[in-house]
Amino acid sequence: MPTDVVIRCEHVDRTFETDDGREHAVLQDIELDVRTGEFLVLIGSSGCGKSTLLNIMAGFDKPSSGSVSVLGRPIAGPGPDRAMVFQDYALLPWLDAMHNVEIGLRLQGHPRNERMQTAREVLELVGLGHAMDRPVYKLSGGMQQRVSIARALALKPAVLLMDEPFGALDAFQRGTMHRELQRIWKSTGSSIVFVTHSLEEALVLGTRVVAMSPGHRGMRGEVVLDPEGTRDPLSAAFTELKHELFALVSADTPAASAFLE
């Protein structure tokens, strides 16, 4: 296996059983490599399997068949090498920001000094150096999501998995978080898998955007972006990419294809 692959999905199928006992395939024969240092975005409408694929990478779900490995080792369950940032933050409300961030290191038996040091560093990285001792429930949604990102970064994961992390934020907060996440990604060199249903979010953030759609039980195609290129949503180039991506995401929904033809 080439060393520049963080997560490798081979022939991944995921089938759910419906209430009336029929089998419903959400993912079929998925082949996907997450490359070291890339910002990979999975995009698609609801039901396209993007979150299922992310949960499989996280180890919260298992493929019905096929294999998924992280740094060459098969995934047996969730673990700190694949840190997840959840849409609803999922912080521990009885702890302050600092302890929410250091608890992962505590569970792995790191000494106290080192934990506090790391927690301070990542909180400063996400711009929360001033709020370390604040109870997390007193923070705004955007700040809570920063804590959640800091918690994930503190684990020094091989890959950061983000499940529509900014879905609950308003447009202004989301814009700020996009810039912040870009900055963090560039300064840490992390590999990121980011799930969204927003075309604009995908194209603003990603270096590679994989389009998924329900009818295809998985991937439809991908758009590769220049990491250093402009991400101005008002530029003509951006609009063109958006059209291309929209076509990929919605090609198999009858109404959309009629519209595009």
Binding site: G77, P80, A83, A90, L92, I103, L107
Partner: peptide, 18 residues
């Protein structure tokens, strides 16, 4: 209790007792 906490705990590397 929020089932999400179980996911968070397992992701952070907690064993069953933790």
């Amino acid at each position: 209790a929020n089932r999400m906490l179980v996911r968070v705990g397992r992701m952070l590397g907690a064993n069953q007792f933790q």
